[in-house]
Amino acid sequence: MIKVINLHKYFGDLEVLKGVNNEIKKGEVVCVIGPSGSGKSTFLRCLNLLEVPTRGEVIIGDIALTGNMKDIDKLRRHVGMVFQQFNLFPHMTVIENIMLAPVKVLKKSKEEAAAEALELLGRVGLADKANEYPSRLSGGQKQRVAIARAMAMNPEVMLFDEPTSALDPEMVGEVLEVIKALANEGMTMVIVTHEMGFAREVSDRVLFMDEGIIYEEGTPAQIFSNPQRSRTREFLSKVL
């Protein structure tokens, strides 16, 4: 479903990704962990070309992301993204946030988009907030709306960039529950996270990134209970 071949990314002279290779299968839930500055977020952002790779290839489905703008827009419809800072549109109500892309990009009718938006809001437990502005919501509620907004495009893959890092501790749980429910429905997901317990529970495979490469990967059991390499062990001993 997603193939990443020899991905390199420079910011100026700084090499952030130093040759990342991986393949993510349909229905797979992959968590990316690692110290800050290891390139996790950059890797994720390369998967829908919010960052343009300096070298290497990202292939999603049968489209290779090479930089053709028309293809990128089309491809992004199939790749949902949830950000650390939520990035809801503050000038629109919750339901307008969710309806925008289906109406403008998929050319759905307003009635159809609204009905689907309400259904999605129900799934994330926020049907009663449809007509509120984002400024009236808590962090956890905002992030759940952001997930519903990404889901409204019916994506084949969902990317999560540290979805709970900006949340107060008591709101982390409600967001993780929503993500877990998606995982159980068979959604393909790539999740950058610092929630080790969550990564262990939800993922099929864990990637440990350090210094711009995938340093070690394996099932959650392998990575968390029996890490093979020194820096993985060192990192986990600090965070677990």
């Binding site: 919010l50 992004r76 549109f89 925008l100 892309a101 403008k104």
Partner: peptide, 25 residues
């Protein structure tokens, strides 16, 4: 900048993102 990224990641084009997300703000 996150507003542009959110718009583009939903599949909106540059000009759609400008018109519906950035300019109103």
């Amino acid at each position: 900048k996150g507003q542009t990224e959110a718009g583009r990641s939903l599949g909106l084009s540059y000009s759609q993102t400008m018109r519906h997300v950035i300019i109103p703000q």
